[in-house]
Amino acid sequence: MQYQTITRSAVAAAATVLGAAAAVAEDKPALDKAAIDKAFESLKTFDWGVDNNKFRALLGPIEDALPATHGDAAARKELETKLAAVLSTGASRAAKDYVGRKLAIIGTAESVSALAALLPDKDLSHMARYALERIPAPEAAKALRDSLAKTSGTQKAGVIGSLGVRRAAESIADLAALVGDSDESIAVAAATALGDIGSVESAKALQDAKPASDPVKLRVADAQLTAGECLLTAGDKAGALAVYKSLIASPEKSVRLAATRGLLLASGKKE
């Protein structure tokens, strides 16, 4: 079976990626497929109410399989398929919580649809994002973006936050429209996400935003400052200067001072 294909040569190949400077002895045992299958059986009835020893006894083989399958695409895929399958069963919230954590590390595009189905679920939305936010595949970003129309309230704010962490530039138009949302948590999340994306376009969207309340206004200004710093880091001094100039007359003293600092940095002055 694929699980047993992990060999010392695969480990050695993975170590080679790090180069000679980091080459160290890594002696990984072959996977125990029977133990892994048993752990997946345990996962069907797994729930909160176990201490760490019991947790390890029940799910330890899955825990151990994650590092052991590094560099073995087939074994990883088999593991991922089994994990994702749990999400559409009647397994407990704790079991699906556990799966979300593991798919955050090994999930691929293959798991995205099973995870995306949970995004509107108030109990499971976070653990779905726990994986989707960290899965690099563009399908994960698309699933998050598509779920904006299917979520509301705090779940929607969470999805927006994940798009920001992913710096999902293709979501700028969606996010810009949400900065003026009457739900403060959504508006704040949208502003923060646009700041995190940190492009000229997202900065412009923030500048044009019409925040509904003072707390959101403060967060929009903060997000603009974040965007300015992103542009500066990327070497776009002109873009950063435009952001800071737009804030220099802010009614908030702290924002004016921060914008002045930004102007100086964008002009080449060191702190």
Binding site: S125, H126, Y130, G158, S162
Partner: peptide, 20 residues
């Protein structure tokens, strides 16, 4: 650098509505 798996562990998704 170049380590997609390890980069996933640089952060974790925060429970809604909390964002940094």
């Amino acid at each position: 650098p170049g380590d997609e798996e390890a980069n996933r562990l640089v952060d974790r998704a925060r429970r809604e509505p909390w964002t940094l």
